[in-house]
Design a protein around this nucleic acid. Structure first.
Lengths: 112, 112
DNA sequence: TCAATGTATGAACAAGTGTTCAGATAAGCA
DNA sequence: TGCTTATCTGAACACTTGTTCATACATTGA
């Protein structure tokens, strides 16, 4: 991304769309977290389900290590929450917007 | 993404979530196209606007070449449509779901 | 047809990202 | 305390991706 003028970002971002740089970054991060097949599988799997890492790995067909890595990403962006019960940690969706995003995107691919 | 069993994908994907492999790929692609700052800027800029490449580049602060490259990506996924008028080509959003996705994601980042 | 403008394209590079593998914690139980 | 199970973590690797630069194509008007 290269600038063509000497305008500071704060000015240019207000030209259209009314999105601050911070908002744009956060939006990008939100879409990015769902743009990986492993993470999306996990998100879909956790819709209406509370599962431990082993079950998540089993249900999605990925290794437990890979699942753990991606769950940390999902956790850091507050897409999933976790609850420890003994040795196990149960994960579930932490935001109804996630299901909504998946739903709208599903409608999109169905209609195009 | 590695398998841990000998189950074919078609079986494993039906365990939970009821998403086919094709649907998952399309969903991933949809989120991925919005997970790049340049493309997201363009999408936001084109909300309620029909603009030519030069204006898109100007409004988003990216080079015309970069804009053109990304517009092709957006076009290939049917997120934008184009209309030629003389030497200029005007782009606009081709799917109301895109605005909806941006809206829901914006709500998400505002509440977390 | 030639020049000028608007847009598209290909190659190459830099940067980012997800997986695997090995090993490290953490909790429960004998 | 040890042992086992469940999960996490770091490093390394292969792979993907977006940008830039130079160039090509397309349309219009002289």
């Amino acid at each position: 991304m290269e600038t063509k003028t000497t305008l500071p970002k704060s000015v240019k971002n207000k030209k259209r769309g009314a999105l601050t740089g911070r908002q744009l970054e956060d939006l990008v991060e939100t879409f990015k977290v769902l743009s990986d097949p492993t993470r999306l599988k996990i998100a879909v799997t956790l819709t209406n389900n509370e599962l431990c890492v082993h079950d998540i790995a089993d249900a999605t067909g990925i290794s437990e290590s890979a699942a753990s890595h991606q769950l940390r990403v999902l956790r850091s962006l507050r897409l999933v929450k976790h609850r420890r019960q003994g040795k196990q940690i149960f994960y579930s969706l932490d935001d109804h917007h996630i299901e909504k995003l998946i739903q709208v995107a599903t409608e999109h691919i169905a209609e195009r």
